[in-house]
């Protein structure tokens, strides 16, 4: 009962703030809506027992990526006519229709979804210890490759941002 209440509260918050992102005219409001979306998603992760993922969702996404977004939005002093106009009416209509079609297909797929045998042996809790053990044993190589990707991202950002305007 409690679980259901929290699920629906967080789901409404999630959908509402996600709609706020794509409908906002001011980019600062869109970024702040994304913060709200990510906090709601973090709450859903806690409901699912993924505590470590919920924590890094708040720290990494809401803490680092969103601040980066906000800095860039504020740094780029956009003139009003370059500011966030929607595309033409036909394209907006086409996008919405495509989205509804996609959602309908997805609902059909989920409705006819045969439930596979779920493991009832242990309800896994995604604590830091459990996730960390798996991360440094089974997924040690992908973890190292990911660190390489982050280094490439840092160097790329520095090279791009330092480029002089001709």
């Amino acid at each position: 009962m409690n679980h259901l209440f929290f699920f629906y509260t967080l789901a409404v918050l999630l959908i509402g703030s996600a709609l706020g992102i794509i409908l906002a005219r001011n980019p600062v409001y869109a970024v702040l809506s994304l913060v709200s979306t990510l906090f709601a998603l973090s709450g859903l992760f806690v409901l699912l027992g993924a505590y470590f993922v919920a924590a890094i969702q708040v720290i990494l996404y809401a803490g680092a990526i969103l601040v980066l977004f906000l800095f860039v939005v504020m740094l780029l002093d956009l003139t009003p006519e370059t500011l966030f106009k929607m595309k033409g009416g036909t394209l907006k209509l086409a996008g919405t229709l495509f989205g509804l079609f996609f959602l309908w297909q997805f609902a059909q797929a989920v409705r006819t979804f045969t439930p596979f045998p779920t493991s009832t042996t242990s309800s896994v809790a995604g604590t830091t210890a459990a996730v960390g053990k798996l991360l440094f044993t089974t997924y040690a190589l992908p973890f190292e490759v990911a660190s390489g990707l982050v280094v490439v991202g840092i160097i790329g950002a520095i090279v791009l941002a330092k480029k002089k305007v001709p």
Binding site: I22, P27, A94, G95
Partner: peptide, 15 residues
């Protein structure tokens, strides 16, 4: 779906 509609209908790179 919301994200997909956003990618299709928005024109700005940041959005």
């Amino acid at each position: 779906t919301i994200g997909l509609v956003g990618v299709i209908t928005r024109r700005n790179v940041i959005m």
